[in-house]
């Protein structure tokens, strides 16, 4: 399990600003959890992502893996082995001259070679919808932005990490790409021992996957289980910088008008709710 204990962070250049970006944050990520974190632009999500990955060091407080404080170089190496991080900007992690070489860099470092390396790379590329026969030889830098993001993701999935830190992973992906990513992450979670921290502004993209939500604001974090909230009744995601998809907006309005809705994501259920309102109001 990954944990942050009382972590505070200020950037070195952050001179005139009164409070640290992250202020005394504690967080636990047990296996099986998908924690979705939202927050305004500049609230500290990417900073938190880099702290979780050991890429930034807390100004105070600590990072723990399996109950052990991460301090020595060997602890950091273990963290790197277990964790994959996807940066908000995919360019930050692409470097090789071909997609195949880029995706195989990680697994190669883990000691894979020959057929097993090729198989691992092939599987990861297929998971993100970039078949090797079409994309393997291309330069990642000649791809469209959405395609680049998928290459970066394949590179991470090919390492078969235990913990994924994903900073806005759905940005730039088209409809098919988002569905592919969602099912790849579902498959990843089926391992049972895996966990994910996902930073996003889009409720639609993380609603199915999330087990927990957290909101970052004023350097503080507030987390709660998805089961503890009733989307239709008490959730005001918009004031928490999440974009509500149309189905959620409509479901909330209809439920305020007295309709019963089983599954707010189902077009059929929402259609039935609309009909029940129309008929009860006497119009047809």
């Amino acid at each position: 399990m990954l944990a942050l204990r009382n972590v505070t962070y200020s950037y070195p250049l952050q001179i005139q600003r009164e409070r640290p970006v992250l202020d005394d944050i504690s967080l636990e990520l047990p296996p099986g959890k998908v924690l979705c974190v939202a927050g305004n632009n500049g609230s500290g999500k990417s900073t938190l992502a880099q702290l979780c990955a050991g890429l930034l060091l807390p100004s105070s407080g600590s990072l723990e893996l399996e109950g052990r404080r991460i301090t020595r170089k060997s602890d950091f190496l273990e963290l790197r082995r277990k964790m994959g991080i996807l940066f908000q900007s995919p360019e930050d992690q692409l470097f090789a001259e071909s997609v195949f070489k880029d995706v195989s860099f990680g697994p190669k470092n883990l000691g894979l070679k020959g057929d097993s390396l090729e198989k691992r790379v092939r599987k990861a590329c297929e998971m993100v919808g970039l078949p090797l026969n079409l994309y393997g030889g291309k330069s990642p830098f000649s791809l469209s932005e959405g395609e680049k993001r998928r290459v970066a993701l394949a590179g991470i999935l090919a390492m078969e990490p235990q913990i994924l830190i994903l900073d806005e992973p759905f940005i730039g992906l088209d409809f098919e790409g988002r569905k592919l990513l969602e099912s790849a992450l579902e498959a990843f979670m089926r391992q049972g021992t895996a966990s994910i921290i996902l930073f996003t502004h889009e409720l639609a993209h993380c609603w199915k996957l999330a087990t927990d939500f957290a909101f970052l604001s004023g350097g503080k974090i507030a987390a709660f289980e998805k089961g503890d909230i009733n989307l239709l009744r008490d959730m005001d995601f918009s004031s928490l910088s999440m974009n509500l998809p149309q189905w959620a907006v409509l479901a909330r309005k209809l439920s305020n008008m007295g309709a019963k809705i089983n599954n707010p994501e189902s077009p059929r259920d929402l259609a039935l709710a609309l009909i029940s309102i129309k008929e009860s109001s006497g119009g047809k």
């Binding site: 939202a38 632009n41 502004h201 995601f237 918009s238 910088s241 999440m242």
Partner: peptide, 8 residues
Amino acid sequence: SMLDSGSR
């Protein structure tokens, strides 16, 4: 693409 709901 990366804006929060208010900025968007």
